[in-house]
Simulated scan of single mutants.
Amino acid sequence: MAPRVAPLLALGLLLLWTSPALGSANDIEDCCLSVTQRPIPRNIVRDFRYLLIKDGCRVPAVVFTTLRGRQLCAPPDQPWVDRIIRRLQKTSAKSKRQSS
């Protein structure tokens, strides 16, 4: 009987591990563990997103994606972070108008 239990147990664990219901636990991997206080050069940033405490993260952050695809965590309350976000939003609005 023991040889039959092991494969069933393995299958059950695999199903639980890949279950969509556990997706929120995997989202924690997207959180920043720390943020950089050094300003990030605006010309290397192509996108951003917010990661907030209400989203389940311990450290609130703005995650900037660079032109090379790296993700850099920055503090949302810094003026240099706001300037980069405003520039990205302005560039995005400008490109949307040109494509219309």
Rank of each mutant, 00 (worst) to 15 (best):
66 T>Q: 04
18 T>G: 07
99 S>R: 14
23 G>C: 12
61 A>Y: 04
8 L>I: 07
100 S>F: 05
32 C>I: 10
40 I>R: 02
41 P>T: 09
19 S>D: 14
14 L>S: 13
39 P>Y: 06
10 A>P: 12
20 P>G: 05
36 T>M: 08
15 L>A: 14
97 R>P: 04
16 L>Y: 13
82 D>G: 12
31 C>E: 00
10 A>Q: 11
43 N>F: 08
66 T>H: 03
67 L>Q: 15
27 D>S: 15
67 L>C: 08
49 R>A: 06
82 D>H: 14
85 I>N: 01
62 V>W: 00
62 V>N: 00
58 R>Q: 08
57 C>F: 06
95 S>W: 03
74 A>Q: 11
58 R>Y: 07
9 L>I: 12
22 L>F: 12
43 N>M: 05
58 R>N: 08
10 A>M: 13
72 L>Y: 09
55 D>Q: 02
100 S>H: 10
27 D>F: 12
98 Q>V: 04
38 R>K: 14
20 P>D: 07
7 P>N: 03
53 I>L: 04
21 A>P: 06
11 L>V: 08
33 L>M: 13
76 P>N: 07
76 P>F: 02
10 A>E: 10
85 I>P: 01
73 C>V: 01
56 G>F: 01
40 I>F: 07
55 D>Y: 00
63 V>Y: 03
12 G>P: 08
70 R>P: 08
13 L>K: 04
19 S>T: 10
21 A>V: 10
2 A>F: 15
88 L>F: 02
54 K>V: 04
24 S>F: 14
59 V>M: 07
36 T>G: 12
95 S>P: 09
9 L>D: 07
94 K>V: 06
58 R>C: 01
77 D>R: 13
68 R>D: 14
87 R>Y: 09
71 Q>E: 14
81 V>Q: 00
48 F>K: 05
17 W>S: 03
72 L>Q: 12
91 T>G: 01
24 S>D: 15
35 V>N: 12
63 V>C: 03
7 P>K: 05
7 P>E: 00
78 Q>T: 09
24 S>L: 13
98 Q>T: 06
63 V>F: 04
60 P>A: 04
47 D>R: 07
34 S>I: 10
3 P>W: 15
43 N>R: 14
44 I>L: 05
4 R>G: 13
5 V>I: 15
3 P>K: 15
97 R>V: 01
13 L>R: 02
69 G>M: 10
27 D>V: 11
75 P>M: 00
48 F>A: 00
56 G>Q: 04
94 K>P: 06
14 L>E: 09
33 L>N: 14
89 Q>T: 08
70 R>D: 13
90 K>V: 05
17 W>N: 07
2 A>Q: 15
51 L>F: 05
34 S>L: 11
11 L>N: 04
83 R>F: 06
28 I>R: 11
79 P>I: 05
49 R>P: 06
39 P>C: 11
36 T>C: 08
73 C>D: 02
26 N>D: 13
34 S>N: 12
32 C>M: 12
86 R>G: 01
36 T>P: 07
90 K>P: 06
67 L>F: 09
61 A>F: 07
15 L>S: 09
18 T>V: 09
88 L>D: 00
89 Q>P: 10
62 V>M: 01
15 L>E: 08
8 L>M: 10
11 L>I: 07
79 P>W: 05
89 Q>G: 05
25 A>L: 14
22 L>M: 12
